[in-house]
Nucleic acid binder design. Structure first.
Lengths: 205, 205, 205, 205
DNA sequence: GATGAATGAGCATTCATTCAT
DNA sequence: AATGAATGAATGCTCATTCAT
């Protein structure tokens, strides 16, 4: 199964599970269930038996497809990154004025973070405490960098790496704040905050 | 014991533990040990027995001072916030040109995040999954907002809440990135990134 | 598995445990081991790990079958009640003179209480201190009441509820006294005491 | 301090505690607090620290007066027995018709059991599981027997030990049933049940 | 490929008891 | 006589993982 299909699976319902199916479909279902569970309850708040059960399988099946719990997390993360880039890429590819596109890119980011804020929080915690996940995380980030650079070249703007990275960080952090209620706790106006983000993006597009 | 003294404890070595000391000192030692353990191994990567042992006590002592594991985490967080504000406040109070002060404030932020990156990662994960910790977190954030607003008034600058919050987010996120090696993974130049942050702060000071 | 079969299990030896058996048999073994342990050491004198071990399982297995320690106690109690009624019912169903039957019913009661006196003591303590167990206990008692009334109707005697209840109480208490050595401490003659009980039962049969 | 004074203490408030007082008063306060705690929460539901605290002392003080937790229980039990006999004796000593006296004795029993039903439940559980407490219990029972025999001789009735013991058992058990709600669960009429008990007592007086 | 019963190390928490002050 | 901080073995319960079917 290609990456695209799996990424798709994160969003859509899979066909009803047959008693015995092709390995990729089983794995797919497990990844989808795990993504949901991690996002909902956090990495340490879920257990592998439950993930298996929610995917429609018995505990043992889980370990036929992943060496351990960490492994599903890694798989979920991989899909998650792929999906984000697909969405951002698709948005940038659509026609429209620069204003329109900036607006849309911010929208995609915010939506993605809102949807996966629980997962992202676990990700950051694991990156900090787990060597293997940290390494994996950095590989993903490097991939993002490559794609980012390509996009910059495409739009014929001189890429100032640090400046662009900072923009990414700002959007990402603000997206988290909007997603997890922090913005409200700080009594920030959602519309204004969003407008500021759009302006920042626009400036670099 | 006042907050200041406890916050201090997070930074300095406590006197060697007597066989039996005043409760506040015991609590202090436990908070210090817990901060270290959470930062090193993450919230779910440590256990209360180990925290007690590392503070030089038996398991039961821990529960004389905290109702549960969550409670130490909250205590650590409270001190952590207090300390950050103390450090930033102290830095702003020192004399110097606007450039100097911007430079120093960024320095304090980066150092603080570098020192506590593991703890912060756990914090974000718990804020996402634990209702009680989330509530507590928001209370802290609200406090920060008040202090921030006071600082803005003091320097006779019109506080644009959303803009300032965004600045905080940017610094925080960039500080985390520099702290946990993400900046390196993205092949960002530390000096340039830092200079960008200083410029952003300067602009709003 | 039906109630009867489980109740049976309290009396008979189960087949030697296979490495992996049907859940009901595992549960059955755990209930049997728990009944024995509660009877021998009291509710607070045993622990779930020991019950599991004595049933031939690891600690975790216990919690696959019962949400907590209280739950096995309730299961044991349920079986205990069922078994007592089965035995009394069987005795009353057997042919014989009224004298014979009174004699046998008292015999069954005494044997049952002798066998389970430790369990019964724990039961009374828990009924006094634990809300949930108290509720459960009362449900059982109500069931007993219904069966009692039916028996009374069957033998065409006017049931005087309070008088019959008092008879039950007397037998129960005397049975406990005979079982736990209290009768001996009071230097009571077992034969005489038993004869008095038989006479009381006979009178109401 | 005499037994009477201690028994009194189970019913009345003690004078406000001085910082340091005579050992017997401290012991007395601890016994009173323990009686209350055992009755309320059961033997295993209370802890020695709490008993000490509720008596107005620190944990260590408890162990200056009792070798262990079991020892307070024994002390409480001793007082409890003494008190019951005092109350029953006082009632029988009062003038009145035989009917009046039977009525009053039953009243005293019921009240005493109602008041201490939790404690009694723990007592029964410990008697079943704890060797030392069982021995102690039997000694108390033997004492009761002696006093009972004396009372019987005094009223010039031939004491039929087994019959009298059975009466005691019946009253005790019925008193418990009325006290802990079992009578209600069985939908028994309190007034009728009580009348039956009075009649039984009257017959033997 | 899938099952699910079983495992057992591990962790949060309690509480009877001690002892230096 | 009283204190109360400290202890640490014990206990209830969890969950990642295995393996025989």
């Amino acid at each position: 199964m290609g990456r695209a299909r799996l990424a798709l699976a994160l969003a859509r319902k899979l066909p009803p599970r047959p008693r015995r199916g092709p390995p990729e479909e089983t794995r797919e279902r497990l990844v989808v269930a795990a993504a949901e569970a991690f996002n909902r309850d956090g990495y340490d708040g879920t257990d592998s038996n439950r993930i298996a059960r929610e995917a429609g399988y018995a505990p043992g099946t889980f370990y036929k497809h992943f060496v351990d719990k960490r492994a599903v997390f890694l798989a979920v993360y991989e899909e998650w990154v792929a999906r984000e880039f697909r969405d951002v890429g698709a948005t940038l590819a659509e026609p429209g004025t620069v204003d329109d596109r900036a607006e849309r890119v911010v929208g995609v980011f915010l939506a993605h973070h809102q949807r996966w804020r629980g997962f992202r929080a676990s990700l950051r915690a694991l990156v900090a405490s787990d060597r293997e996940i940290r390494d994996f995380y950095r590989v993903q980030r490097r991939k993002q960098l490559v794609i980012l650079a390509e996009m910059q070249t495409a739009r014929k703007k001189k890429a100032i790496r640090e400046r662009d990275a900072l923009l990414l960080f700002t959007i990402e952090r603000a997206a988290d704040a909007l997603a997890d209620g922090e913005a409200e706790a700080l009594e920030l106006n959602h519309v204004s905050l969003r407008a500021l983000l759009v302006a920042l993006v626009r400036e670099r597009l």
